[in-house]
Nucleic acid binder design. Structure first.
Length: 514
RNA sequence: GGCCCGUUCGUCUAGGGGUUAGGACGCAUCCCUUUCACGGAUGAAACACGGGUUCGAUUCCCGUACGGGCUACCA
């Protein structure tokens, strides 16, 4: 059962600004958001920028903009709201000395220690252990006995090293052979023997905390009630539990929920930037200034944020009924961790497109016309709003994206310059030409010129005068051999344009008759 | 390798000691549409394997296999 006590629910999404926020991160943020909203809680954005070497310019802004586009806005944190727990960037929180304080508390109680080992010494230790066929070389309850740290050095030696400003880290002193257990909301009880956990670095030699210390401190300070994060954190969770315990904060420890990962559609492993089978990895275009790489986003690919979010929500979660198209409010109302799957979910590009199609169909013709107008403006094409609305109405059933309406309905915006060659070659002959020319006269007499009367004319003509080759007629008037109902196309085009196009086609093509 | 997590149609999933194992995407066939990428109908398609427990296991337990994650002074 999900633990929701009398305390106000406060959750956080805590990405590190090491790159653009990808869809896996968005889903983590989404689940946090849904849970918070469901329980009238707070959703906080905290930036975990403790690794200065991996900081990527623009990443933080990107995260904020991406969350906004997705409609999963935090009500507190970097770029959002005016929460009372500022600052929300760990690099800024460091100056208050808070991480140092907590680390000192752990040292004072004997649960952490200074380690002065250099990179070379650590490397040598690992080599030694590997040579001795130790399966997993770790800085742990055994190896720390042979390293340079405040457990092996005398008080005076340690003090001297400290005074001499010799670089050091602070490590968690993980005990030998103790059972660590915690109840994950999604996975249930997890039991790990402490001997398998290494002495995690809590404070780095540059004075910055590692994730392990920083998130524990901040989650306590920010009164976080539920930590909802990816499964990749499960292995280090026991160390975090230990940290809370040694800090005497066992009873304030947030509930833990580890989400299943999003996997590659084919092949194996975590979803990566290059294996989304043609669909984007990022919510919006992302340009990595450091690597120069440019990634296209869902937004720019023509996805609706609602569809993107809907798809993401159903990757590893289900609403408990067979409903698949769910509004944000429905997602909120139905959300619960009990319905989150334990196994990883493979990303399905086809279904992702299907979701967009569902949302496209829900939009009325005027909403679609406005979106189509944006595309046309980019291409310097002007069109009447009502005309566009009619085009959208007719084309929407066939489209996955608004841009499909434009691409599949080119003939609504341009006069055909070429005609589907296969059709012409096969069907353009004197007999058909004569039929079409006669039909033209009938169409000219059709008044009013709407799809019903046009259909009537075509039908009567076919029955009484001559068999119309509709594919040919379509090709002559639109240039292409497929599309929506001809009568509807003619109605939207209008009598004048329709007739002019067919006449022009006849002129252009006559010489080609063999 | 070690530790942890997992395993229902190709994919996302429902279900759960006795079911014709349900839905969705995709796929196939048919109908409709005088075209079609819409719609409708139908179909093919799954409980990883081996042991228990049980009158009965896909469901519970244990193994095995397979998959995934982690194994940094990264998060």
């Amino acid at each position: 059962m999900t633990q929701v006590s009398n305390k106000k629910v406060r959750v956080r999404f805590a990405p590190s600004p090491t790159g653009g926020l990808h869809m896996g991160g968005v889903r983590t943020a989404l689940f946090n958001y849904l849970f918070a909203k469901k329980h009238n809680g707070d959703f906080i954005l905290r930036i975990e920028d403790t690794d200065q070497t991996r900081y990527v310019k623009g990443a933080e802004e990107y995260i904020i903009e991406a969350l906004k586009w997705c409609g999963i806005e935090p009500n507190e944190g970097v770029g959002f709201g005016n929460g009372t727990h500022a600052p929300y960037r760990q690099s800024e929180r460091k100056s208050s000395g808070i991480y140092w304080e907590y680390a000192q508390k752990l040292i004072a109680s004997g649960h952490a220690y200074y380690a002065f080992d250099t990179e070379q010494e650590l490397e040598a230790m690992r080599k030694r252990l590997e040579a001795a066929k130790v399966a997993a070389p770790q800085y742990n309850h055994i190896t720390r006995e042979h390293m340079r740290n405040s457990l092996t050095l005398s008080h005076t030696e340690v003090q001297k090293l400290l005074d001499d400003k010799v670089p050091f880290v602070i490590r968690l002193k993980v005990p030998r052979n103790e059972e660590i257990r915690f109840n994950d909301i999604i996975r249930g009880w997890i039991v790990v023997n402490s001997s398998t956990i290494d002495d995690k670095v809590l404070l780095k030699s540059d004075g910055m905390p590692t994730y392990h210390l920083a998130h524990v401190v901040d989650d306590i300070e920010m009164q976080i009630t539920h930590v909802v994060r990816g499964e990749e954190w499960l292995p280090s969770a026991p160390a975090h539990v230990l940290t809370y315990k040694y800090l005497g904060l066992e009873n304030n420890m947030p509930n833990l929920a580890h989400l299943p990962l999003i996997l590659k559609p084919d092949g194996k492993g975590k979803l990566s930037k290059r294996d989304t089978s043609g669909l984007p990895m990022f919510p919006m275009n992302w340009h990595d200034e450091r690597t120069g790489e440019h990634y296209i986003g869902y937004k720019e690919s023509g996805f609706f944020p609602e569809a993107f979010i809907n798809m993401l929500a159903l990757l590893g979660w289900n609403p408990g009924n067979n409903q698949e198209v769910l509004s944000k409010q429905e997602l909120i109302d139905l959300f619960s961790f009990e319905k989150v799957h334990k196994a990883g979910a493979k990303f399905d590009p086809e279904k992702t497109k299907w979701f967009n199609q569902q949302y496209l169909r829900k939009k009325d013709k005027h909403q679609l016309a406005a979106l189509l107008q944006e595309i046309l403006i980019e291409k310097n094409i002007t069109a009447d709003t009502e005309y566009l609305a009619n085009v959208c109405e007719l084309m929407k059933e066939k489209a996955y994206f608004v841009k499909d309406i434009f691409e599949m309905g080119q003939f609504f915006f341009f006069e055909p310059q070429t005609y589907d060659e296969k059709i012409i070659q096969k069907k353009w002959n004197h007999d058909n030409k004569k039929i079409i020319e006669t039909l033209l006269e009938q169409l000219n007499l059709t008044t009013p010129f709407n799809h019903e009367t046009i259909h009537q004319t075509l039908d009567n003509f076919s029955k009484n005068t001559g068999k119309i080759d509709f594919q040919l007629l379509r090709t002559l008037s639109t240039g292409v051999s497929s599309g929506p109902s001809l009568a509807h196309i003619f109605e939207i085009l209008g009598k004048e344009k329709t007739l002019a196009r067919i006449k022009k086609a006849i002129q252009t093509l006559t010489i080609n008759i063999s």
